[in-house]
Amino acid sequence: MEAFAHLVNELNAADQKAANAASSAGFAYGLAAIGPGIGIGYLVGKSVEAMARQPEAAGMVRTTMFLGIAFTEALALIGFVVFILIGL
Protein backbone atom coordinates (compact mmCIF):
# COMPACT_ATOMS: atom_id res chain seq x y z
CA MET A 1 0.00 0.00 0.00
CA GLU A 2 2.87 2.39 0.71
CA ALA A 3 3.78 2.41 -2.96
CA PHE A 4 0.40 3.95 -3.75
CA ALA A 5 0.38 6.41 -0.86
CA HIS A 6 1.89 9.25 -2.87
CA LEU A 7 -0.77 8.71 -5.55
CA VAL A 8 -3.59 9.14 -3.02
CA ASN A 9 -2.14 12.40 -1.76
CA GLU A 10 -1.96 13.85 -5.23
CA LEU A 11 -5.62 13.22 -5.98
CA ASN A 12 -7.63 16.37 -6.44
CA ALA A 13 -11.41 16.63 -6.07
CA ALA A 14 -12.21 15.75 -9.69
CA ASP A 15 -10.00 12.67 -9.62
CA GLN A 16 -11.56 11.57 -6.37
CA LYS A 17 -15.01 11.92 -7.89
CA ALA A 18 -13.96 9.92 -10.93
CA ALA A 19 -12.46 7.20 -8.73
CA ASN A 20 -15.64 7.00 -6.67
CA ALA A 21 -17.74 6.83 -9.82
CA ALA A 22 -15.58 4.05 -11.24
CA SER A 23 -15.72 1.92 -8.10
CA SER A 24 -19.46 2.41 -7.58
CA ALA A 25 -20.06 1.56 -11.24
CA GLY A 26 -18.29 -1.72 -10.61
CA PHE A 27 -20.46 -2.35 -7.55
CA ALA A 28 -23.64 -1.49 -9.49
CA TYR A 29 -22.95 -3.99 -12.22
CA GLY A 30 -21.66 -6.65 -9.85
CA LEU A 31 -24.76 -6.44 -7.65
CA ALA A 32 -27.07 -6.34 -10.66
CA ALA A 33 -25.52 -9.53 -12.00
CA ILE A 34 -26.11 -11.67 -8.89
CA GLY A 35 -29.86 -12.09 -9.11
CA PRO A 36 -30.16 -12.71 -12.85
CA GLY A 37 -27.20 -15.11 -12.61
CA ILE A 38 -29.01 -17.26 -10.06
CA GLY A 39 -32.27 -16.87 -11.97
CA ILE A 40 -30.95 -17.90 -15.38
CA GLY A 41 -29.06 -20.84 -13.87
CA TYR A 42 -32.18 -22.10 -12.14
CA LEU A 43 -34.34 -21.51 -15.22
CA VAL A 44 -32.06 -23.28 -17.69
CA GLY A 45 -31.42 -26.13 -15.26
CA LYS A 46 -35.14 -26.75 -14.83
CA SER A 47 -35.67 -26.49 -18.61
CA VAL A 48 -32.98 -29.10 -19.28
CA GLU A 49 -34.63 -31.32 -16.67
CA ALA A 50 -37.97 -30.92 -18.41
CA MET A 51 -36.45 -31.64 -21.83
CA ALA A 52 -34.72 -34.75 -20.50
CA ARG A 53 -37.96 -36.03 -18.97
CA GLN A 54 -40.03 -35.31 -22.04
CA PRO A 55 -37.91 -34.96 -25.20
CA GLU A 56 -41.00 -34.57 -27.43
CA ALA A 57 -41.87 -31.30 -25.64
CA ALA A 58 -38.36 -29.91 -26.13
CA GLY A 59 -39.39 -27.33 -28.74
CA MET A 60 -42.05 -25.78 -26.54
CA VAL A 61 -39.82 -25.82 -23.48
CA ARG A 62 -37.01 -24.18 -25.42
CA THR A 63 -39.24 -21.32 -26.60
CA THR A 64 -40.52 -20.70 -23.10
CA MET A 65 -36.97 -20.93 -21.75
CA PHE A 66 -35.77 -18.19 -24.11
CA LEU A 67 -38.71 -16.01 -23.08
CA GLY A 68 -37.86 -16.51 -19.43
CA ILE A 69 -34.18 -15.80 -20.04
CA ALA A 70 -35.11 -12.60 -21.86
CA PHE A 71 -37.14 -11.34 -18.91
CA THR A 72 -34.58 -12.36 -16.31
CA GLU A 73 -31.64 -10.98 -18.23
CA ALA A 74 -33.26 -7.55 -18.53
CA LEU A 75 -32.37 -6.81 -14.88
CA ALA A 76 -28.69 -7.50 -15.46
CA LEU A 77 -28.75 -5.39 -18.59
CA ILE A 78 -30.31 -2.44 -16.77
CA GLY A 79 -27.43 -2.79 -14.31
CA PHE A 80 -25.04 -2.72 -17.25
CA VAL A 81 -26.64 0.47 -18.58
CA VAL A 82 -26.27 2.08 -15.15
CA PHE A 83 -22.63 0.97 -15.20
CA ILE A 84 -22.14 2.77 -18.53
CA LEU A 85 -23.98 5.87 -17.33
CA ILE A 86 -22.05 6.42 -14.10
CA GLY A 87 -18.74 4.77 -14.96
CA LEU A 88 -17.71 6.10 -18.35
Binding site: A70, F71, E73, A74, L77, I78, F80, V81, I84
Partner: peptide, 13 residues
Protein backbone atom coordinates in the same frame (compact mmCIF):
# COMPACT_ATOMS: atom_id res chain seq x y z
CA UNK B 1 -38.41 0.18 -22.35
CA UNK B 2 -37.26 -3.37 -21.61
CA UNK B 3 -37.48 -4.35 -25.29
CA UNK B 4 -35.22 -1.42 -26.13
CA UNK B 5 -32.73 -1.93 -23.35
CA UNK B 6 -32.47 -5.69 -23.90
CA UNK B 7 -31.42 -5.39 -27.53
CA UNK B 8 -29.34 -2.25 -27.12
CA UNK B 9 -27.46 -3.29 -23.98
CA UNK B 10 -26.68 -6.78 -25.28
CA UNK B 11 -25.16 -5.46 -28.46
CA UNK B 12 -23.33 -2.64 -26.67
CA UNK B 13 -21.91 -5.05 -24.08
Amino acid sequence: FSLTVRLFANMLA
